[in-house]
Amino acid sequence: MRALRIAAAVELVTLAALLVNLFTVHTEAVSSLGGPLHGTAYLTVIALTWATTPVNTTRGTRSRSVIPGVGGLLVLRRHRRGAHRRRPADIR
Rank of each mutant, 00 (worst) to 15 (best):
A29L: 14
R77W: 10
H26D: 14
R5A: 00
R62A: 01
L48G: 05
V30E: 08
I67G: 01
T49N: 02
L15F: 13
V66H: 12
A8L: 04
I91C: 05
H84L: 11
V10I: 14
G71W: 05
L4H: 06
V70N: 01
R85A: 03
T52K: 12
T24W: 15
A47P: 01
A29G: 05
T24M: 15
L74K: 03
I67H: 03
L76R: 00
G82I: 00
G60A: 07
T44E: 02
G39R: 12
G35C: 10
R77P: 00
L4A: 03
L43S: 06
L18D: 10
A8H: 03
N21L: 11
G69E: 03
P88A: 07
R85Q: 07
E11L: 04
I46V: 15
W50I: 08
W50Q: 08
L74R: 06
F23M: 13
V75S: 00
P68H: 14
L19G: 08
L76Y: 01
L33Y: 15
D90H: 11
G69I: 02
T58P: 02
V55T: 12
P68F: 14
R62L: 06
A29V: 11
A3S: 09
A3V: 03
L22A: 15
V13Y: 03
T58E: 12
M1P: 01
V66P: 04
A7L: 02
R92Y: 01
V25D: 13
V75R: 03
G71I: 06
I67S: 06
R87F: 08
A41T: 05
A89D: 12
A9E: 04
V25E: 13
A16E: 05
S32R: 15
A89L: 06
L33G: 08
L43Q: 02
M1H: 03
G60T: 04
V70K: 05
L76G: 00
R92D: 06
H38E: 09
H79Y: 05
L43M: 12
V45M: 09
G72F: 07
N56H: 11
L48R: 05
A47D: 04
T40Y: 13
V13M: 07
L4W: 03
A3N: 11
I91R: 12
V13R: 03
T53S: 13
S32V: 10
R80F: 02
W50M: 06
V70P: 00
L22T: 11
A3Q: 10
V20Y: 14
G71R: 04
V45Y: 11
A8K: 03
R85W: 01
H79Q: 08
L4Y: 05
A3T: 05
V30I: 15
T61Y: 10
H38Y: 15
A17Q: 05
R85E: 07
H26E: 13
V75K: 01
A9F: 14
A8D: 01
N21E: 14
T27F: 15
G34H: 14
R62N: 08
S31Q: 13
T44H: 07
S65H: 09
H38A: 10
S65T: 06
T40F: 15
P54M: 08
R80C: 00
G72R: 04
N56A: 13
R85I: 05
G34T: 12
G39P: 07
T14G: 04
V75Y: 04
W50L: 15
